[in-house]
Simulated scan of single mutants.
Amino acid sequence: MSKATRATQVLDRAGIAYSVHAYAYDPEAPRIGLQAAEALGLSPDRILKTLMAEADGKPVCVLVASDREVSLKRLAAACGAKSAAMLKPAEAERITGYHVGGISPLGQKRRLPVLIDDAALSAGHDEIYLNGGGRGLQVRLRPADLVAVLEARVVPLT
């Protein structure tokens, strides 16, 4: 598997320090983020999962710790919307240009608003992991760098 992806290219262009970590991806895993944490020997709160949702019909990218669940009510409120829902896998793939299990918030086909759960960044980790743009590929970087490169809003979502 190539370690150069659209996601890593975004980090390279932004001059952000990161490292790439490959693991044996299990397409049958019920929760991909938790499987990645186990495969890499990390606590689940260090791995952020990328979720694709919509708020009042507009797509949004959401990052939460792999062991947490998004509150759709909080997501809608954070977006100033009346309702929020998770996108169907095929729609998420169409919008991002990535395959489910390999969706990164970095390097998506079009730039979407990104929300990061405040609990995911309040654990005090110097570095966190997120999908690097391919199944079985994680990138490790500093939380502040992630927020900056994504121009993300950090809000309560879980």
Rank of each mutant, 00 (worst) to 15 (best):
A90H: 12
L72Q: 04
Y129R: 07
K82T: 10
R6Q: 11
A22G: 03
G124D: 13
L106T: 07
R94N: 04
A148S: 15
Q9H: 09
V70L: 07
Q138P: 02
G15A: 08
L11K: 09
S2T: 15
I103A: 06
T96V: 01
V70Q: 02
D67C: 09
G107H: 02
E151V: 07
R46C: 02
G33R: 04
S104M: 10
V114N: 07
K58C: 03
T5Y: 05
E38F: 07
E93P: 08
R13P: 05
L106Y: 04
R142M: 10
K109I: 01
G33Q: 09
G57M: 03
D45C: 02
G80P: 05
Y98F: 13
R46V: 03
L87R: 03
P27E: 11
G133I: 10
S122Y: 01
S66G: 10
S71H: 06
E127M: 07
L42W: 04
L34Q: 15
K88L: 14
G97P: 00
R31Y: 13
G132T: 09
A92V: 05
R13W: 08
E127S: 10
A37G: 14
D145A: 14
P27N: 07
V20P: 05
D145S: 14
P143E: 06
G97Q: 00
K88G: 13
G124W: 09
I16F: 12
K82Q: 11
L150E: 09
L137A: 07
A55C: 15
A123W: 12
P59F: 00
G97I: 02
T5H: 05
R74F: 02
A14K: 12
R110N: 03
S19V: 10
P30H: 11
A90V: 10
S122E: 09
M1S: 14
A120L: 11
S2I: 12
L150M: 12
A17D: 15
R153S: 15
K49F: 01
G101D: 05
A29H: 07
Y129T: 06
G41V: 11
K58T: 11
G132Q: 08
R110E: 14
D117G: 10
M86I: 06
L112Y: 01
M52T: 07
V155W: 09
P44D: 13
P44R: 08
K73V: 11
